[in-house]
Design a protein around this nucleic acid. Structure first.
Lengths: 257, 257
DNA sequence: CGACCGATTGACACAGCTCAAATGAAGTGG
DNA sequence: CCACTTCATTTGAGCTGTGTCAATCGGTCG
């Protein structure tokens, strides 16, 4: 979880979306951050809350979810380091869903006031964050498609592929292998299936030698096969330019420096 | 489909999100619009396109969808008059999904260049449109939940409730009754079920006297019951302030002027 | 009148769910 | 270092909601 500066992954991601001027970088660097730690499965923001700050993920994972019928849970998004998990609280309140830590997580809170000041000073940063919102919208379209029209094994494969690519994008996955502190029940709640069935699907993927899944470690052994099963293509994630994208998706992955 | 000015529903919706100055209204009024007609089931924008303009719905309905396995279709959003269906093309290209007309539709194209000029001149309008993007994100979260954790009848009820409220918001539904040129197959593709099952669900809703569904006309007879079945609450649509919201959702609906 | 499209119905199949119990892994405290 | 707890994974056995296939019906339009 150690990185140069707390906001460096965020910067890295923004810079893939648009060129940032030195001034923009400076503005981000000046944001007042309050670092906080959350232990596994604790709530970072609750339904109905009206937060006065945004939450930047520094280490670990957050996830957004809604409850249905009181008992059932649907995970609506995963957030990885470098993501701002509740940018919308800048504009909308109260919160229409819950935000929780998947495993132990480190986040930085950024006061709305300071964030808005920053945006006022740089229309260009406003554009960059707005663009980020559009990308999140694209991810949601893909999730809707995933849940609406793919069977269980495809859903699981798709979610795993998405996480692999997103993590690789922030240097948290190497060779299509990454650590994430989720349970099979978490996976099930993201894929809209039961935990029992999630287990069967994971076993099937393992049995065919397509991927490993041991105690919080996922490793995709055969990218092409898994991507095919999950009907996955990374276009919707809008990472970098095509030239940069090639090596990211090949079965072999080149080291990024 | 006749309204005062082409952009009046858009203005109406934006004004619910934030106060607009005379200057802002003026900027919107000055947007160069190209009106176009589309007949039922024609494509407005194709997967892979790089449009140079945004699409404002004036009359009728558009819907976004993705294809899975070549054959299956998942509708990811419905767009009603006053909605901009592809605002994201302002920032992202190429298009990751298709945009089509549900029935005959009238749209207005707004060149990106002019739209960006407008945003440059009014940070406040930028905020308003960004906020609109966040609302769309909220709708997507709700759809993910709908598809992931609700059974068929609840999904259908939920989608119908959402459309009723959104249409009522732009004066296109009265007394929880509205016209929409969709087929049961369209409904099915939005709800992630088969067209045969969609038909059975519609019949069940009819049988219990909860709603009518005759040739493109939907009428909710018992709002409370349908909203309960669909686990629907309109909060996520972020329409107006609580005070304005009351009458909108009661079984009885007051006339809006 | 014929063609076409959407709604409807019936019969059957199956993916995935629920319930329930067993197994395994990782602490925790004595 | 062993009981004990707790939580996640795994397995088995029905059950059911929904899908698929195929046929029919009804309306609309040229």
């Amino acid at each position: 979880m150690e990185i140069g500066r707390p906001y460096s992954r965020l910067l890295h991601r923004l810079e893939r979306l648009s060129e940032l001027s030195a001034h923009d970088r400076q503005l981000i660097a000046e944001l007042p951050l309050t670092v906080a730690n959350f232990s596994a499965n604790t709530e970072v923001a609750r339904y109905g809350d009206t937060p006065s700050r945004c939450t930047l993920v520094l280490g670990g994972f957050l996830y957004g979810h809604k409850r249905v019928n009181g008992s059932q849970r649907q995970i609506t998004s995963f957030f990885v380091p470098g993501d701002i998990a509740d940018l919308h609280t800048l504009h909308l309140a109260p919160l229409d869903h819950e935000l929780s830590a998947l495993g132990p997580a480190v986040v930085a809170f950024m006061p709305h006031r300071a964030f808005r000041d920053m945006l006022d000073r740089s229309p260009h940063l406003t554009q960059a964050f707005w663009r980020d919102t559009f990308i999140r919208l694209g991810i949601m379209r893909e999730w809707v498609t995933n849940l609406g029209r793919r069977d269980a094994i495809a859903r699981v494969a798709h979610v795993v592929c998405e996480l692999a690519v997103r993590l690789q994008n922030v240097d948290l996955a190497q060779n299509l292998s990454f650590s994430i502190p989720w349970t099979q029940t978490d996976l099930a709640d993201a894929c809209g299936i039961s935990n029992v069935h999630a287990n069967r699907v994971v076993q099937e993927l393992r049995r065919h030698g397509l991927m490993d899944w041991d105690s919080r470690k996922v490793m995709i052994r055969d990218w092409d096969a898994v991507a095919k099963i999950g009907d996955f293509s990374d276009e919707y994630l809008q990472l970098g330019r095509p030239l940069e994208r090639e090596p990211l998706l090949g079965a072999k992955v080149s080291e990024r420096v």
